[in-house]
Design a binder for these strands. Structure first.
Lengths: 161, 161
DNA sequence: TATTGTTATACTCTATAACTATA
DNA sequence: TATAGTTATAGAGTATAACAATA
């Protein structure tokens, strides 16, 4: 394998260079499949001036009204200090509010505004549409099998359901 | 749904906040499954002081000896100027070389050194092991189905093979 | 005039550490 | 003493723009 053809012919400029090896990996196929959805996700979020982290924050706040910033940081797996910027931005756009907590005057209770909930619902619907379109080549049975397999990989083997 | 329980109880600090919605998406399951492999990949690469982009660059150069930096930039989907830093680092560690091109004195022909090829092979073997371990819960048939499904998603529906 | 590689610079995202006000 | 949120700062990674050498 890998015959030493050290001499390069010309090398076209477009997308010629595919790395054969990486394509063998399931991880690579997984990534490529995920990238299809991620790209669509980015496109949708861009229309609403959100990045993935901001949208995740919004989603978490919508689904967990009243949580403090530290819990948000844990959920997003980022540092507390980094949430400040994100929360600032969401608050500045009137998508969420920092409410006072009666029992602990250090903490904030984060809640989504009506506007925030509406934007979240809108985006969620768009994502669902993308999902449906992308999965149009799969039957319901296929989809179930796929989900089971992904879960199996995620959990490190097993499942087989 | 989403009853307005705007009052927050206490909010535990650990990993309590799961966003129900995101978990419905296949894209999310895809991401979680991919993250399992990506995490392992990062761990392996860290041992060799490489990041994903650096390793991709090395892989591409190993598989396409002699390609110029512009082609590498295209393959990696980054700017030409950004390849300079990456190529500098790989060259500084004697993993690749910048060779002169007789026919075009502006360009370089990038080739991996023996050391670079060996490191690449070592890492590739480690990745294969991770793949095998992670897929241990899947039969060969399962794996084939999974790959077909991933391809289907990647190509935007169809395949059904 | 266009292209290869380079440099200088700026921008985005995140982490670290130090601070404040509470607890 | 510990914790919630904040600030200032630094770092990693990448893009943009201008440049020299060559085509």
């Amino acid at each position: 394998m890998t015959s030493p053809k050290e001499t390069a012919p010309k090398a076209p400029a477009q997308p010629p260079v595919t790395d054969r090896l990486l394509q063998q990996f399931t991880g690579y196929n997984l990534k490529r499949a995920y990238l299809v959805i991620e790209t669509e996700l980015h496109r949708i979020l861009k229309d609403h001036d959100l990045r993935v982290t901001s949208f995740s924050a919004l989603a978490i706040i919508v689904e967990n009204p009243g949580l403090p910033q530290t819990a948000l940081a844990n959920a997003l797996q980022i540092e507390r200090s980094s949430t400040v910027v994100i929360v600032d931005a969401l608050e500045g756009r009137d998508l969420i509010q920092r409410n006072k907590v009666a029992t602990d005057r250090r903490a904030y209770a984060l809640v989504a505004t009506l506007r925030g909930r509406q934007m979240f619902e809108t985006i969620a619907a768009l994502i669902h549409m993308v999902e449906n379109r992308i999965q149009s080549g799969l039957t319901d049975a296929d989809r179930a099998v796929l989900t089971a397999h992904l879960r199996s990989i995620r959990d490190g083997g097993d499942t087989t359901t």
